[in-house]
């Protein structure tokens, strides 16, 4: 059984078939690259696999479990993760908090309302370990928006820390197909949200 098993995946925007009956399987330990010209649908595929975008048909099985219909956060918890071509961070958080938030997602409930999270040694230590691993430990206390590293795609790397035994991640190297009305709309909305926190 493959770690990632995709069968008959489809996605269309109106008459344009972006993903047309795609089959793909990835074994444990394998490394794959998806290439194609602008607008070929690479980003859409990544979005479909990660659950960011819906699919019209097909199945995505990860480690034997059906992921189709599961929201993005559930897939992440199952061990799938993605990074973004355009750096996606929590700009108001410190570098350490950015990573600690990712650790927090995997350790214990976050419906805890009273104990200060900044004092949780277990979260901070694991996060520091990850930062040290990628060589930005000295920036831990810096605001992520200020950190020069924020400009680099590498930044995404430690937020998937610690790696799970069965995990699989990918990054999409090319921009989403432009010109589609809905995509353009949601992007301009995202842009305005980036300008303002109150969107």
């Amino acid at each position: 059984m493959s770690l990632l098993d995709v069968r008959g995946l489809r996605k269309a925007y109106g008459a344009l078939k972006v993903t047309d009956d795609l089959n793909l399987s990835v074994e444990k330990g394998e490394l794959h690259a998806i290439i194609g010209p602008n607008g070929a649908g690479k980003s859409t595929l990544i979005a479909q696999l990660s659950g960011q975008a819906g699919s019209d048909a097909g199945s995505v099985r990860f480690d034997g479990a059906e992921m189709m219909g599961q929201p993005m956060h559930a897939r992440v918890r199952a061990g799938m993760s993605r990074s973004f071509q355009i750096t996606s961070i929590l700009p108001g958080f410190t570098v350490l908090e950015n990573v600690a938030a990712a650790v927090q997602a995997r350790r214990g409930s976050s419906f805890r309302f009273f104990a200060p999270v900044a004092g949780e040694r277990a979260l901070n230590d694991t996060a520091m370990e990850a930062l040290a691993r990628v060589g930005i430990a000295e920036r831990a206390a810096m605001r992520a928006a200020v950190s020069a590293m924020a400009k680099s795609g590498n930044w995404n790397w430690p937020s998937r820390w610690p790696p799970r035994r069965n995990s699989c991640s990918w990054t999409s190297p090319l921009p989403a197909p432009a010109g589609r009305r809905r995509i353009a709309w949601s992007r301009s909305c995202a842009a305005s949200r980036a300008r303002s926190r109150w969107c």
Binding site: P71, M72, H73, V76, F84, S88, L90, F93, R106
Partner: peptide
């Protein structure tokens, strides 16, 4: 922390599992 994170970047929070 999760609440503030969701304000800062909801997509990011989903991508790390919230």
């Amino acid at each position: 922390r999760v609440l503030t994170g969701a304000r800062e970047n909801p997509l990011r929070m989903q991508a790390i599992g919230f």
